[in-house]
């Protein structure tokens, strides 16, 4: 079943067309990644899907409903979560409060149990639960951002460069958790510059270049594609 279907998405930033007619789809339960160089339009795409881009055109069908005209907070309430580039931690709110903000739109009684789950996933966050978000290291902030997104019980989780600026060990942990989240039934759309790690994790992938999708397919197949290997995995392919 289709979770998300995007048709001819265009995003304009200032006078520049950053996303030039992107079409992609994510099925329920999939882990799809979107890779590409810096400035290819990956972040703009995610921002438009979550409702943050002001000048976006095109069709966004989420769970069989056209949400292209809905404001960001309504999309979030429908289960579409984005962990944005830079993580968006509330610097003056405590770790606990950041997590509770993740559950802002929930009314059920499972919030505390879910917070304990996040603490089990990232024990560091439990140790720092009363510290403010701004005092955390980059890796801890990424854990918090991920944990906060989980607190909303998303149906589709979109992650923008979760590995950016983090130590390799932390990156490995974050990717493990993303795999875990997906295994629990959350559909994931992952944007990454770390193409190798993303392709190894994903079921399907799209490659984006200057605002357009240039390649798509099974992640495994793309991992062995000479063009992808040369452009994104830093390998020179013998002729």
């Amino acid at each position: 079943m289709s979770m998300l279907a995007v048709r001819d998405l265009e995003v304009r930033y200032g006078g520049i067309l950053a996303v030039k007619g992107v079409s992609l789809h994510v099925d329920e339960g999939e882990l799809v990644c979107l890779i590409g160089a810096n400035g290819a339009g990956k972040s703009s795409t995610l921002r438009a899907l979550s409702g943050l881009a002001e000048n976006a055109k095109g069709g966004v069908i989420y769970q069989e409903r056209d949400i292209a005209a809905r404001p960001a907070f309504e999309r979030a309430r429908a289960g579409l979560a984005l962990v944005p580039e830079g993580r968006g931690i509330f610097a003056q709110l405590s770790v606990d409060e950041n997590l509770l903000m993740g559950a802002y739109m929930r009314r059920d009684s499972g919030i505390n149990a879910d917070r304990d789950d996040v603490f089990a996933l990232f024990p560091r966050l439990r140790e720092r639960r009363s510290q403010t978000g701004g005092t955390l290291s980059g890796g801890e902030q990424q854990m918090l951002a991920l944990g906060r997104a989980l607190m909303s019980r998303p149906k589709l989780l979109m992650l923008d460069e979760p590995s950016m600026g983090l130590a390799p060990l932390v990156v490995r942990r974050i990717f493990e958790v993303i795999r875990d989240i997906n295994a629990r039934g959350v559909t994931v759309l992952l944007v990454e510059q770390n193409a190798k790690a993303a392709l190894e994790l994903a079921t399907r992938a799209y490659v984006m270049e200057s605002g357009r999708i240039t390649l798509e397919g099974e992640a495994r197949a793309l991992l062995n594609d000479p063009k992808v290997r040369e452009a994104y995995l830093g390998e020179s392919v013998a002729p």
Partner: peptide, 16 residues
């Protein structure tokens, strides 16, 4: 407080 610190992020968490 969340909206005052980062309105976009608050919206992404469902805050109107």
């Amino acid at each position: 407080r969340a909206t005052s610190q980062n309105p976009q992020m608050a919206a992404l968490l469902g805050v109107d």
